[in-house]
Design a protein around this nucleic acid. Structure first.
Lengths: 272, 272
DNA sequence: CGCTCCCTTGAAGCTATTCAAGTTGAGTGG
DNA sequence: CCACTCAACTTGAATAGCTTCAAGGGAGCG
């Protein structure tokens, strides 16, 4: 059994069949949520990491004046807060934007993977680093791009990320984002977002519908937005295998692991 | 031998004497740079991670139109790009803002620490996660805070981070940042930054000098900026995170409630 | 002394926000 | 089936916030 998350990671980090089996077991518990449902809330100390398998979610913060700031979109195949357990508490919330299918991974299982599946653990870190890279690009967008290019850039990013996991390949795919959500992402008012989208529509770069946006020609939109996908680090793995990353955790034993994932060569057997 | 970086990490992650020795050896090679010197450049694949021991540096990107976007400040005790080797290439540059003393760590050594010093490796990851948390706060700042509170918030953060490693404790400490650097951080023009700082000076919140800014009363500035340091994750290893204050549900206002439990919709778009 | 780098100030104009008033389309109940 | 409702989208007008252009000032340095 596999899923979008595993397929995405296995294209970036070399993993054995046993690695993939372990990751598959870790993400097998699925939950279904409606739109506008919070998975975790600011100030809490969650016990699970999440993997989005279907639907759109986001990280967000509510400011003192009630306005919302969206910090990240989570699309199918994305993990979120895979390592938040290292930090003391969440400083933002995670909520669904559309109905979502979500896999949960208890942090205890992540610790086990850290101890016995170094390549899986490395893959999870890869995912965290890509998130950080996206965050940097968003900061650039909000700080330095004009509002039309900024919105176009977001749309290019979302489509590119979806296409990287085999979704949204058809040119009439509707991005299920509301204008108010784009506004809270870009730090603009919803009125201004409407006017900018209007202009993009007049330029035939997008089509605006009631339930989302359609990008008929992604390449043209990319050219307009000066979109360079390097920061998504999507290139296929082609180099030497990445460094092993074992973590010796006191509360996970080899026995625990084998009961859960079956007998396999542990990290210690294959590495000094 | 020890340094600011090691002292900072050892307060967050439990490390043995041998761990600290290993980390100390890894950061023992020091280099000295002038101001405005690039440590790494966009597009390169560096062989070293850096630790700032003295001076200010930053991550930045130069846009197509020549403007600069500052993505992070690196102050003494900060590591940078500790795990960039997992990703394929740098998508931003790192440059000094003042003369700097810098320790270099070859990625080869980080691999060794990963294999033999799990707690050290965990500490490095802690540092990466805090960087990401700061990045999120900056995105909130640039997107949703008014320009005066935004600049005040940056100054509070820099001083709080410095004080966390025992620096900038005296009330006449001069933050060595130029107005143009603040502008490139906040995504504002240097002219506007000058006017906003002027206002803050009139309100006696800061003092502006030729070679930097002075914050005579940090607590007052924090109050103005609504600065909450949680996102810096500074609490000591042995300190429990502060328990949330009890909320009187019967008498709580909508605001109280939402501050605590969040809300998954934009308020900005609704009539107050 | 004069040069350069920053900081400062003024004025004009553009961009984005706010307030306010529609419009549209999907869902709901009569 | 049609009226009603509601959320999302649209449009206009007034104004606030920010940028740009332009010019001047002051400290440090060769």
């Amino acid at each position: 059994m596999t899923n979008l998350f595993i397929r995405k990671l296995s294209r970036r980090v070399r993993m054995s069949d046993a690695d993939i089996e372990a990751l598959s077991a870790a993400t097998s518990k699925m939950l279904y949520y409606d739109a506008d449902h919070d998975l975790t809330q600011e100030g809490s100390k969650p016990e699970f990491a999440y993997v989005i398998l279907d639907g759109f979610a986001c990280r967000y913060r509510i400011m003192q004046d009630g306005s919302r700031s969206i910090l990240a979109y989570l699309v199918p195949g994305d993990g979120c807060d895979l390592h938040a357990s290292i930090l003391t508490q969440m400083v933002h919330s995670i909520g669904t934007l559309t109905p979502c299918t979500v896999a949960t991974i208890p942090y205890r299982v992540i610790k086990e993977l850290a101890a016995y599946r170094p390549n899986v653990y490395l893959a999870l870190w890869w995912s965290v680093l890509v998130d950080e890279s996206i965050l940097q690009e968003w900061l650039v967008s909000v700080g330095r791009r004009s509002s039309d290019k900024q919105l176009a850039h977001f749309l290019c990013e979302v489509l590119t990320r979806l296409q990287a996991v085999g979704l949204a390949l058809e040119p009439d795919y509707r991005i299920p984002l509301k204008q108010s959500e784009l506004a809270d992402t870009a730090g603009l008012s919803h009125v201004h977002v409407q006017r900018v989208l209007s202009d993009l529509r007049k330029a035939k770069l997008i089509e605006v519908g009631r339930k989302g946006l359609v990008v008929p020609d992604l390449e043209r939109l990319k050219a307009f937005a000066e979109f360079k996908p390097d920061y998504l680090h999507l290139s296929h793995l082609d180099e030497a295998p990445p460094p092993p990353a074992p973590l010796d955790l006191a509360n996970a034993t080899k026995d625990d692991f084998e009961k859960r994932f079956g007998r396999n060569r542990s990290f210690r057997d294959q590495n000094p």
